[in-house]
Design a binder for these strands. Structure first.
Lengths: 139, 139
DNA sequence: CGGTATCCTTGGTGATACTG
DNA sequence: CAGTATCACCAAGGATACCG
């Protein structure tokens, strides 16, 4: 009974969190599509003219991503019905990923967000500089 | 010079990544606003009728968040000029957070994303079930 | 080419305690 | 009330190596 406090509270917290997620599944989904790699991948796929990209193309288009995260994210997107995975059993295997209708509709939104980032980047930078400067002055 | 391989490659990779970020700062900003807590906080702030929420209100509104992450995220949002932090020096100190114009414009977009999540949650769930079922059948 | 499996580091998270 | 600081923990993430 000695070491119960921490573990017990953890379990309780976890349970409470799960209960919340159950009550508000939207947050769960929102958190998922708010994922860094999801945004970048869906965005990349959405920008493709053909709407289709190969695995290695994605890896090259998104410099910071590891195979692990790429595969993992692609898998979850496929599972959620946002992308389709098409395997062409040629000699060097070819795998194409494409947004579904559902994925494309999300892609439009994320493109808006990306556009917002592009449009307001300067503004954000200016705020950052001002903030950092005043922080430096204060210190 | 013996242990140079790993560290060196890490450094090179980091440098390459930084160079990319420099060339494409949008990705950086996109990744930042794609953060889980950013989405939830901006969303919460955007949903508030007065547009203003206290620190503890946010903590209560977003069940999974720790003080650490809440403060940290709020700080970066303030730094980026997306929220304002107003301190009222009453006896129990009162701190209100409010979206700026800039933050509100992002909030609208994120609300759209949230709305998308609400509208398409069932669809995503159905896809998930189908995917899991076929995976189970295959195993 | 397109992964999977493995190891290891980073960093998010929670708990706790203390300040203004 | 609104933080700040620290510690311990664990899972996500990244690098590497190997397989189909």
């Amino acid at each position: 009974m000695a070491t119960r406090t921490a573990a017990d509270r953890r379990e309780a917290a976890r349970a409470a969190y799960d209960a919340f997620v159950k009550d508000c599944p939207t947050s769960q989904l929102l958190a998922r599509i708010s994922d860094k790699w999801v945004g970048l991948i869906v965005s990349a796929l959405g920008q493709s003219e053909t709407g289709s990209m190969r695995y290695s193309d994605l890896g090259r288009k998104i410099p910071g991503v590891s195979q692990k995260m790429l595969t993992q994210t692609l898998r979850s997107l496929e599972r959620d019905g946002l992308v389709t995975r098409t395997v062409t059993p040629s000699v060097p295997v070819r795998v194409d990923y494409r947004l579904t209708e559902l994925g494309a509709s999300l892609g439009d939104l994320l493109s808006s967000v990306k556009l917002w980032a592009e449009r307001h980047f300067d503004e954000v930078s200016a705020h950052r500089d001002a903030y950092d400067e005043s922080a430096t002055a204060a210190a």
